[in-house]
């Protein structure tokens, strides 16, 4: 009964946040599409013309990397600040603090789903065939979702104790972005570096999306399995930390 109440709250709060966000601008929810398009356009210009890469259909290749990356980045940024930014609310009413990061995970996932649908349309329109391999998309999303949840919950858990971490996080995410094989192929870097890059789960996940959407290949199952396993551990331990400090956060935030 109580869990049901909390799930309802997460769901309604996520919807409310999305609605409020859309109501803030004239173009409203169209920004969820326009904004990613603009940022991808910029990266496309920079990497395609100025830093000329020799990859065919670079626009599609780039989108397959950037779109999953944006899901990760915006969820982690948003979720990491979710507990701190609810400072005044948690002084007024008792709510379980897990609700805050879960709400931002949900709303960011919703936005990602819209863009993912557009990505698939773009891939198909560019002449890539649809294949049985598309059935692996939900599985790769599950692995990525778990990884996102793990990172987000841990960031949200420690952020109220370490406000300085927030400034560091921006730079960490930027470093991680350039090490995620979004703008280049993993195979294009020296072999020694490849192993290092693959230690970053986002590298493997992005290669997985490309395998499915562009190369009609199954993703690397054992790699995805390992990510899913480690991420679940991260997510569960992060949740436990938040649960442990559930009634401490209002005192320090």
């Amino acid at each position: 009964m109580k869990l049901q109440r909390e799930l309802n709250l997460i769901f309604y709060k996520a919807c409310a946040e999305l609605r409020a966000e859309a109501a803030r601008t004239y173009a409203g929810f169209l920004w969820w599409i326009i904004e990613p398009l603009i940022s991808m356009g910029i990266y496309y210009l920079v990497f395609s013309f100025i830093l000329a890469r020799n990859i065919e259909n670079y626009a599609v290749f780039l989108c397959c990397g950037l779109i999953p990356w944006r899901w990760f980045q915006s969820s982690v940024m948003c979720g990491a600040n979710s507990v701190i930014s609810s400072r005044s609310l948690m002084q007024q009413v008792y709510i379980h603090k897990l609700i805050f990061p879960c709400t931002s995970l949900l709303s960011n996932t919703f936005k990602f789903l819209i863009i993912l649908a557009l990505l698939i349309a773009f891939v198909l329109l560019s002449g890539y065939p649809i294949s049985i391999k598309y059935t692996a998309i939900p599985i790769i999303m599950l692995a990525q979702g778990a990884f996102i949840a793990g990172c987000t919950l841990w960031c949200a858990a420690i952020m109220p104790f370490l406000p300085d971490f927030r400034l560091l996080l921006l730079n960490l995410l930027q470093l991680m972005m350039f090490m995620s094989a979004i703008f280049y192929k993993v195979e294009a870097v020296p072999e020694k570096l490849q192993t290092l890059l693959l230690l970053n789960p986002m590298t493997g996940i992005i290669s997985g999306y490309r395998d499915i959407l562009l190369f009609q290949k199954w993703p690397d199952w054992s790699y995805l399995g390992a990510i899913l396993f480690v991420s679940t551990l991260l997510a569960v331990s992060g949740s436990l930390v938040i649960h442990r400090f559930n009634r401490i956060y209002p005192k320090i935030a």
Binding site: R5, L9, A16, R19, A23, R24, Q92, V93, I95
Partner: peptide, 26 residues
């Protein structure tokens, strides 16, 4: 705790705020 306007969002309608605030208050 009888707390007024808990969780109110200026960009949501009156009705939506009633629902949100009501749910937050239990």
């Amino acid at each position: 705790l009888l707390s007024l306007q808990a969780g109110f969002d200026p960009f949501l309608t009156g009705r939506q705020n009633i629902t949100l605030s009501g749910m937050l208050l239990g």
